[in-house]
Design a binder for these strands. Structure first.
Lengths: 237, 237
DNA sequence: CGGCGAATTGAGCTGACTCAACCCGAGTGG
DNA sequence: CCACTCGGGTTGAGTCAGCTCAATTCGCCG
């Protein structure tokens, strides 16, 4: 692995942040950088759980499908997120790249050994897994009980929060904010449990209401954050 | 705590199974048995995360509500399950008793200390949290993409599997199996993201089709397990 | 300029919800 | 012992949000 961990873009945000320099050295011996092109699938649901990874750049989706082909995106992963399923022989969900993606990959058994040798890392992973569980459960409420407009508005809010951490955006609080969605309409529909057409209609409805603007197909401008949160059924932040 | 861990009904199934006898002794000093009556709420969403617990008997629900009162049950807990949210200041979901319930409760900070001192327990909790995350994500697919009949059939299958572990039931594989649902129709609706009426209609539809029988309001007999799994959109087990 | 995938828009359908009536079994009190 | 109540549960009729199917339109790339 040519690139050094010291240069790593997510050095301080990923699981590795829990490792002291000497431990990090040992992990680096095990890891390999990998690139996956947009649209490619890394791991198929039901296949052996062979690798764990940290996402360095890009966006991954975790998805499940019914036997007759209906798909649901059950999770999105952003840079510094942990990917993989330790302690299980097989993985339950398919992992695919929504954009070109760069990962730091470690064989699963070696990763488990690192975990066992490093209580700080294991604890950090436990914290993150609890947080992911809370997030998945919160999405259960949204998927089951929110209307299409609440889902779409809520999705834009969450993507905006995600974008805020990464890009520049954000001028005045409450003022217009613009960012790019890493998902197509169809992928948004797969996240929200809707159809492409419904997502499109809800977006134009928000646009007509002046809550958002859609300067490009992939980009969104939030013109009235408070109204958007209200549409999403969230309390004003 | 009068009862000894050695007598504990879930001694070998709960997190404590990872503890050696001396460590178990220390944990016992910290734990207290608690009873909660059916219908009572133990913990409110948004309140401080003060305790962790192991469920000894009964069934708990984990639920979330929208601000205008729509409810969704995001998880069910059965005996030997871990309850609580370590490493967070507040809890995100409300915990209530669906039946009379018995718990072994430990203050959260003390529990975290036990975890830190005991790598085996921490690892077991990590495994279980990953499993819970997989389960929650699988439910995302079901909630978002399954029809009402698939949801109800799938729910009966999962409750039957849960009952199989606990009660006698199960004569011949594939033969009729009878067990009791610990939930009312309304609670089943809250789990599946449906209404009471829809749940009731789907159950009578399955009954009319001869797939199940409903000998009592709370009990279910599976007459044709293969057909039931087919209705649920599962592959024949 | 032509082609192609993604997005939008329209029209009609339908599965699940809403609202309402009724049933049933268990507890309660006269 | 029976009438009353009350919390489920079932069943029916009508509505509507979101799906399906279909026709354009848009944006990008060669």
């Amino acid at each position: 692995m040519t690139a050094l961990c010291a240069d790593c873009a997510v050095r301080d945000a990923a699981l590795c942040s829990s490792l002291a320099d000497d431990q990090l050295d040992r992990l680096r011996q095990l890891g390999r950088r990998h690139r996956v092109a947009r649209g490619e699938t890394m791991v198929w649901a039901g296949s052996d759980s062979l690798v764990c990874a940290t996402l360095l750049s890009g966006v991954l989706k975790l998805s499940a499908t019914t036997r007759d082909g209906r798909e649901q995106i059950v999770g999105l992963h952003f840079p510094s997120d942990f990917i993989g399923r330790p302690y299980a022989g097989t993985v339950a969900f398919t992992v695919s790249a929504l954009t070109d993606v760069e990962l730091c990959v470690v064989p699963r058994d070696r990763f488990e050994a690192v975990l066992a040798a490093n209580g700080g890392m294991e604890r950090l992973l436990l914290e993150r897994t609890f947080a992911a569980l809370d997030a998945a459960r919160a999405r259960l409420l949204s998927l089951a009980r929110n209307s299409a407009s609440e889902k779409v508005a809520g999705f834009i809010v969450s993507m905006a929060e995600r974008a805020r951490g990464i890009s520049d955006s954000c001028a005045l609080p409450g003022g217009p904010v613009t960012f790019d969605l890493p998902l197509t309409r169809g992928q948004i529909a797969d996240v929200l449990g809707l159809t492409i057409e419904t997502v499109s209609r809800q977006l134009t409805k928000l646009k007509v209401a002046g809550v958002i603007a859609l300067p490009g197909v992939r980009s969104v401008t939030i013109r009235d954050a408070a109204a958007l949160r209200a549409c999403a059924g969230l309390d004003p932040a």
